[in-house]
Computed example of a mutant assay.
Amino acid sequence: MPVLRQARLVLPDGLVENGWLCTEGERIAALGGPQQLPPPGPDGGQYNLSGHYVVPGFVDMHVHGGGGGAFSSGRVEEARNAVAFHLSHGTTTIMASTVTGALADLERYIAELAELVEDGVLAGIHLEGPFIARSRCGAHDPNLLRDPEPAAVRRLVKAGRGAVRMVTLAPELEHGLEATGLLADAGVIAAFGHTDATYAEANHAIARGARVATHVFNAMRPVHHREPGPVTAALEQEEVFVEIVNDGMHVHPSVVHLVYAAAGAHRIALITDAMEAAGSPDGRYPLGPLTVEVSGGAVRVAGTDTLAGSTLTMDNALRNTVLSVGVPIEQAAVSASLTPARALGLADRIGTLETGKYADLVVLDDDLRVVAVMRRGRWVHGMGATAHVPAVTL
């Protein structure tokens, strides 16, 4: 029973100074503050954290790759490399996002990724495209976009054998509202993004079951004082979770601050939207069928100013939220862990430091940089860990 002592435990309602936490097997067995004595824990080791923060393991519900691996490559080892890279930055639960492609190619990628979901390496699959608006396609090949006809939507969901957990679509497309309802009825999260939807159209999608706004503000009709658009609809509706890419480039810190004031940490999910170049040098990289250029950490479609994903990691997203936006660490941790866990229906197992939940946690120093990562009660980074990514059950 490993025991972590002298820690600053980050809980949703505040910090516990000089706290302790012990694990048993895959789960958190107990935790407390200085007024309580932890169990001796001689069998699993004692870890004096010297005042470091302990936050719940990060949950990234929108990421395309990293560490030189892409989820849309069709190669399982690349996907495993991407998972290992983000795990070293504290992401203990990760959902693989695909990019727009031909239906046959997407079926193949989904089937390959489904194996990793079944093995417990991935929490699920997110389809970003091809059911999105040409006018807001961003880094998606406009020639491969299509209307979300029910047959096409069912075809891709079926390819995942239950692993497809979320689909982003533009609700203003001909079959957009029908597809939204179809997905919601099938237990798949319907997200609206890469969309030119009006305020009314977005609200219709929410009424049909849409529950996530994909990287809010980005690739989305902007707010106008006479046409509020999908951003305002998302922020108004309590049942909608809003994703934010907080890398300082996708959304200005002042706007992130505004979103926190409007929606609160309990509805904001920090995401990376990272692609394979995360953790790699600047240069040219593939993103699905397109080529992107990475310079100074910014990713753009080659030869354009269009942002194309990011090189962000979840630890940097949390740090930016605390240091650049001014959100208290306990609220930033909610957005990095609990909120996406709630969006994915996993909050009963992960997302907070809580007795009985899985022992997924990240140790951060005073500068909010990763010191160690534990997944399911095993150190997978720092504390003498190996790079092995354990299979788990969600």
Results as ranks from 00 to 15, higher is better:
41 G>W: 01
65 G>N: 11
56 P>Q: 04
53 Y>K: 03
113 L>N: 00
71 F>Q: 03
161 R>E: 09
160 G>W: 04
225 H>G: 12
208 R>G: 06
267 R>D: 02
157 V>A: 12
91 T>L: 06
306 T>D: 04
145 L>Y: 05
233 A>L: 10
251 V>C: 01
187 G>W: 08
307 L>V: 10
36 Q>C: 09
273 D>V: 13
79 A>K: 01
89 H>A: 12
362 V>R: 01
94 I>S: 04
86 H>D: 09
357 K>R: 15
370 V>F: 01
378 R>N: 01
87 L>D: 04
179 A>T: 14
351 G>D: 06
259 V>T: 10
233 A>V: 13
254 S>D: 13
44 G>Q: 12
279 G>M: 08
143 N>W: 02
206 I>C: 10
144 L>N: 07
258 L>E: 08
10 V>W: 04
392 V>S: 09
93 T>E: 04
369 R>N: 14
267 R>F: 07
161 R>M: 05
314 M>H: 12
158 K>R: 15
366 D>W: 00
293 E>K: 12
373 V>R: 00
196 D>W: 08
183 L>R: 10
346 L>R: 09
315 D>E: 11
22 C>E: 13
318 L>P: 03
18 N>P: 00
189 I>V: 15
222 P>W: 11
153 V>E: 05
352 T>V: 13
280 S>K: 15
77 E>H: 12
271 I>K: 09
352 T>W: 01
25 G>Q: 03
310 S>I: 11
135 S>R: 15
130 P>A: 13
357 K>H: 10
142 P>S: 09
380 V>S: 07
349 R>K: 12
385 A>D: 02
251 V>Y: 00
358 Y>S: 06
313 T>G: 12
334 V>H: 03
226 R>C: 09
161 R>V: 06
326 G>D: 05
327 V>T: 14
332 A>V: 09
189 I>S: 04
58 F>K: 05
6 Q>E: 15
7 A>L: 11
349 R>Y: 01
19 G>N: 11
167 V>L: 15
149 E>V: 14
112 E>R: 01
22 C>R: 14
282 D>P: 02
232 T>N: 06
387 A>C: 00
91 T>C: 10
302 A>C: 07
240 V>P: 02
124 G>E: 03
143 N>G: 15
25 G>C: 01
11 L>T: 15
353 L>T: 07
155 R>G: 09
380 V>N: 06
31 L>R: 06
61 M>H: 04
39 P>E: 12
290 L>F: 11
15 L>C: 08
322 V>G: 03
150 P>S: 15
148 P>I: 10
357 K>C: 02
304 T>N: 12
19 G>H: 11
162 G>K: 00
125 I>H: 03
44 G>H: 08
348 D>K: 06
366 D>F: 00
37 L>Y: 00
345 G>H: 05
271 I>F: 07
232 T>M: 15
266 H>V: 12
44 G>Y: 07
261 A>R: 15
251 V>D: 00
207 A>V: 06
68 G>H: 08
343 A>R: 01
236 E>A: 13
259 V>A: 10
22 C>Y: 02
47 Y>L: 11
290 L>I: 09
298 A>M: 15
71 F>Y: 15
301 V>P: 06
203 N>W: 12
104 A>V: 13
372 A>E: 00
313 T>H: 08
104 A>T: 14
